[in-house]
């Protein structure tokens, strides 16, 4: 899958957050978007992942505009995963129920939890496990339907160094199996794992480098 964004502009009230952004991302690649806080990383990630409609500009998936993809929620369920900085697990559901919430095939939930090292925590609630385990559950939720691309916004922002490296390793592992990753972070360590590095500043892409 190829995701293209053309001339994306985004305003929040009078705040001009994205200024004519053009970017192209191939599924199966590992792309890092880096920049300081307020540079527009999260907004770009939200627009690319269909979680936010831009003020103007167009996002296409294999050449098709959002309006041509049918029900956008259903499209997202089949093709896109999202990992937030904060785990955002639903507090009244167990880890397993959180992961199974959007699963197209319930049988994939347990093997996935096992492979991420949280199988024994299936019946625990998010406030009963550690920060690292919560983020692993959030990653499992994003991966459960084998999406073409997983977007992650500061996925290690709330984790210590050891857990942060664990998350990057997980991404690398799944990227090698064909899942595309687009990770926004101000942590420059992410660049060590990425094939493509997009640097942002003041709502603009200032540099794209390939490794």
């Amino acid at each position: 899958m190829k995701i293209q964004a053309k001339n994306i502009e985004q305003y929040y009230g009078i705040e001009h957050v994205l200024r004519g952004v053009d970017v192209s991302i191939e599924a199966g690649s590992f792309t890092a978007i880096i920049g300081e806080s307020g540079s527009g990383k999260t907004t770009l990630l939200s627009i690319l992942s269909t979680l936010l409609n831009p003020t103007s500009g167009e996002v296409t998936f294999d050449g098709k505009g959002i309006g041509e993809l049918g029900n956008i929620d259903v499209f997202r369920r089949h093709n896109i995963g999202f990992v937030f900085q904060f785990h955002y697990l639903i507090s009244y559901l167990t880890l397993r129920e959180n992961i199974a919430l959007s699963a197209l095939d319930d049988a994939t939930v347990e093997p996935l939890m096992e492979s991420l090292g949280i199988g024994r925590l299936a019946s625990r609630y998010s406030d009963e496990v550690s920060g690292g385990e919560r983020q692993r559950a959030a990653i499992a939720r994003a991966l459960v339907n084998h999406p073409a691309v997983v977007f992650a916004d500061e996925p290690t922002g709330n984790l210590d160094t050891k857990n942060a490296l664990g998350v990057y390793e997980l991404f690398k592992r799944y990227a090698q199996e064909g899942t595309g990753f687009v990770v926004a972070s101000h942590d420059k360590k992410i660049a060590e794992y990425a094939d493509t590095i997009i640097e942002m500043e003041d709502g603009k892409i200032v540099k794209i480098s390939k490794r």
Binding site: F75, R77, L101, S102
Partner: peptide
């Protein structure tokens, strides 16, 4: 709102 936003973000329809 956050809960419903999360549900939508993981592909549960409106």
């Amino acid at each position: 709102k956050t809960e419903f936003g999360i549900m939508r973000s993981i592909g549960l329809s409106s």
